[in-house]
Structure formats: structure tokens, C-alpha cells
Design a protein around this nucleic acid. Structure first.
Length: 200
DNA sequence: GGAGCGATGTCCT
DNA sequence: GGACATCGCTCCG
């Protein structure tokens, strides 16, 4: 029996990213795509802070690009990187205080056929090709800056949100963040230990 | 299976 | 002009 999905509320995100990050593991990322529902269980995220975190986009201060990170909690910050890929984040902390969480990997639960199509690859038994890594994950869920940046992820009217399906709290392993040059030693990456969809 | 590298948009100096 | 919170393709073992 599957419990009803409960969308995470602004108060969930209105906390330090170091608290929000581990709590997001095991939650469900949901995309409504026409008549289809795409769902994945979150297994890897990273926290990005404010001025005290040189790796964070917010560390340089508020700009047009990163403004969502400085806004109210629970909004999508989507940026384009390396000329090829989008990455999805959610803003944390109250309006005016920057911080967020980068979604790095999910385990596909539903809508895999649509995900393969959005990724532009042939269907294969290895679902890790769909959603392992932030760029792949964004592609599989059809996430772009144009479509999703600034979107409220706490609204039931949104086509993109994060929900709790009542699963027990996940085990959490904390490691250094990966794929960055600055502040590479800060322990701000949260993963489900042993999960095959975790990147790196 | 792992190291090396090109692709390529956007922001910042 | 350079950096960049990445990925997929080579080539080599």
C-alpha cells in the first residue's frame, strides 16, 4: 500500500541547508509532464551556503542569475553549466538569506519511459543512465532554466515539487562535495549509503 | 574501468 | 578571456 504524497512546505526549507540536505534524502522529486507523472527518490544532494562558502553561487552576492537563492525558501534555482547541462537547486532559509541544496541524483520510481525520451537516449536496463548526476537528473525530468527557474516547489499547482511518501527517514552519509574546486573540503554532501544511483 | 578531453552558454573580471 | 556545482566520447589497459 502506497501512502499519499505530501508536498513539502516552505517551513521545511526555511532552515540551514545543512539541516535541509540530509532531510531531503528519501523524499520524492515529482514532475507532472502532460498526463504523465515522473518520480524519483532523492539519494544524493549537496548543501551550498552563503558568503562563508566560496563554492556557492551566492558567495559573490546577489546577481540576476542567482537571485532565487536570496529569495524565500522552497523555490527552484536552475542554472546552466559547461555549455551543456542544467542543474536543479532549491532555495533554503528565509527571504533575504542565501542558501540552497543541489540535487545530484535520484532513483527513478515512475515514468522511466518518459525520462529516457527526455534524455534522448534509447531505453536500457541500466536506469543509472537516467538520473545519476545533476545534469542527467535535470535532463530526465525535463528541467531547464527557462521553464523552471524561480518556480515555487511547495505549491500543489506546480508541475515540479518534492513530496514525502511516508517512507522512514533514510540513512545519511556525509562526505565532501564533488566536482568543485573551491572549498572542496567542506563536508556538505549527503548520500544514501550504498545506493547505486549515487554519483562519483 | 579509468584518465583525458572537447563541447559550448552564461556570468564575471 | 577565463571559469565553471558536467557529461559522453574516445583511447588505453
Amino acid at each position: 500500500m502506497k501512502s499519499a504524497l505530501r508536498i513539502l512546505t516552505p517551513s521545511f526549507y526555511d532552515r540551514d541547508p545543512r539541516l535541509v540536505g540530509p532531510d531531503l534524502l528519501g523524499k520524492i522529486l515529482v514532475r507532472r509532464e502532460e498526463r504523465k507523472l515522473l518520480m524519483g527518490r532523492i539519494v544524493e544532494v549537496e548543501a551550498y551556503l552563503g558568503s562563508e562558502d566560496p563554492a556557492a553561487h551566492a558567495s559573490v552576492g546577489k546577481t540576476a542569475r542567482n537571485a532565487v537563492l536570496f529569495g524565500p525558501p522552497g523555490y527552484a534555482y536552475v542554472y546552466f553549466i559547461y555549455g551543456n547541462h542544467y542543474c536543479l537547486n532549491v532555495s533554503c532559509l528565509p527571504d533575504g538569506v542565501p542558501g540552497g541544496i543541489l540535487f545530484r541524483a535520484v532513483e527513478p520510481i515512475q515514468g522511466m519511459k518518459a525520462m529516457f525520451k527526455l534524455r534522448g537516449i534509447d531505453e536500457s536496463p541500466d536506469l543509472r543512465r537516467l538520473t545519476r548526476g545533476p545534469g542527467r537528473l535535470a535532463a530526465a525530468f525535463g528541467i531547464t532554466r527557462q521553464r523552471d527557474n524561480g518556480k515555487d516547489l511547495t505549491s500543489s499547482r506546480s508541475d515540479l515539487y518534492i513530496a514525502d511518501d511516508g517512507a522512514p527517514a533514510s540513512q545519511v552519509l556525509i562526505t565532501k562535495r564533488i566536482g568543485i574546486k573551491k572549498a572542496a573540503d567542506m563536508p556538505l554532501r549527503y548520500i544514501v549509503p550504498g545506493n547505486r544511483f549515487v554519483s562519483g
